[in-house]
Design a protein around this nucleic acid. Structure first.
Lengths: 114, 114
DNA sequence: CTGTATCCAGCAAGATACTG
DNA sequence: CAGTATCTTGCTGGATACAG
């Protein structure tokens, strides 16, 4: 669907809310972006997603997996390692996430300069 | 800045967090999208942003105004009306928001069909 | 119409410690 | 390494009423 609406419909408002629920929160977008560079293990994510606690990371990963945005793979190594990767479906969000990032950088300059 | 990174830098992670803080939460993106169709008054928003309470709407609008994402204009009518409009700066986010919306629609179909 | 005041519940999330 | 358990707090945001 291309968005060609001339006014905000209730339907689109609700759909947008779904997306926000899906990707919203403090961490999920960051996690997805990090995974967009390649698969990572739990510990990698814990280091790269600055400030997240293992409990919260665990929960977020479960949520993302349930929504088919990431995959979880247990590697048969010793000790066991677990790899997380982004799904093809979630890869669609990467350009959007980058756009958000760029807006953030732009915004910082904008606000600072006033 | 075009994002050409090969790995997630701390800097970009933090910048992304800024954006999430800026646009995150349950309501702001919806508000911005609604305003992207043209200026609206408080009451219009209250009706279109389904489920928001006046207190929360008021607070969100203040936050958005402080970040220069919307403008607030008091009209000299009787009784007084107030118009909210998106700034040129925030207009940059509109395509991104629409991309999020479309992803949400896509996602719904994806999840349902499994 | 455009908000603010008050009161309150629930949950996200932090700290920390612990397990397989 | 990859999490889970527990305990606690602070804030988001809901309901409702009221004010300029």
């Amino acid at each position: 669907m291309q968005c060609t609406e001339k006014a905000p419909s209730k339907e689109s408002t609700l759909a947008l809310r779904d997306t926000i629920e899906l990707l919203g929160g403090k961490w999920r977008i960051c996690i997805l972006r990090n995974l967009s560079f390649g698969e990572m293990r739990f510990k990698d994510l814990q280091e790269t997603v600055i400030g997240i606690s293992p409990k919260v990371l665990s929960k977020e990963l479960q949520d993302l997996e349930q929504n088919r945005l990431i995959t979880r793979t247990v590697n048969n190594t010793k000790p066991v390692t677990v790899s997380y990767a982004i799904t093809a479906h979630a890869a669609h969000t990467v350009p959007v996430i980058n756009a958000l990032l760029e807006f953030g950088l732009l915004h910082r300059r904008k606000i600072k300069s006033t």
